[in-house]
Design a binder for these strands. Structure first.
Length: 204
DNA sequence: GCGACAG
DNA sequence: ATCTTGTCGC
């Protein structure tokens, strides 16, 4: 399925300066039998929350590295469907092309929605990189099998970097620039932080 | 056979 | 992802 859908990924420059971005995340209960998914739309200017949509349900697939999208995509699509504001870019908790078959969650969601998308992961799935500079904004190429698949980006000086990789209709430089703009104070972009908080609250 | 392995 | 325990720093 991934090998098939991968052919629908579009590599495009930009987007220049999106006014809205969406953050997506999923949380699970203690049993792992229930999940809560959230999509939040933020204004890139002041990082204010413009819209929120949530969904509760069951995992559609077990967690298997490389097949992560099959677990969370159904719930995230359902949540996206409930949005009132149409986001210009999707920022996913996970990887885009930095995937064994170059089709991680961010690429998967991008193709299915045809919205520009990229992933910001907390840990690596594939690839190697040279040490990243210690200051905010420093980045190092993430390379897998000899090809560049993303960037290891320092969003806060002296804090562990994040892994940025494009999904659909966006280039790496714009993805990194957006990530930095959305992470003025913490390691992760506000989109991810807000979505994480919202979906976690669904389980309590 | 052994280590790696998004969330 | 989720959980615990402990430490460091503002």
């Amino acid at each position: 399925m991934q090998d098939l859908l991968r052919g629908r990924v579009v590599a495009a420059p930009g987007p220049a300066s999106p006014a809205t971005v969406a953050g997506l995340d999923v949380a699970y209960d203690d049993s792992g039998q229930r999940l809560g998914a959230a999509v939040v739309v933020l204004d890139t200017g002041d990082l204010s929350v413009l819209d929120t949509a949530v969904v509760r349900g069951r995992p559609a697939f077990p967690y298997v590295p490389g097949l992560f999208a099959f677990r969370e995509v159904p719930a995230l699509l359902a949540a996206l469907d409930r949005l009132t504001v149409r986001p210009e870019v999707l920022i996913c908790d996970g990887h885009g092309l930095a995937h064994p078959r170059r089709f991680g969650l961010a690429a998967h969601l991008g193709v299915l929605t045809d919205l520009p998308s990229f992933g910001v992961g907390k840990t690596r799935l594939v690839g190697e990189w040279e040490p990243v500079g210690a200051t905010r904004g420093s980045r190092s190429a993430l390379v897998d099998g000899g090809e560049p698949v993303g960037a290891v980006l320092r969003t806060q000086t002296g804090v562990k970097p994040v892994f940025v990789s494009v999904g659909h209709r966006i280039d790496l430089d714009h993805a990194c620039a957006l990530t930095l703009r959305l992470a003025p104070r913490y390691r992760l972009p506000e989109t991810t932080r807000v979505a994480d908080r919202v979906c976690r609250d669904l389980l309590t």
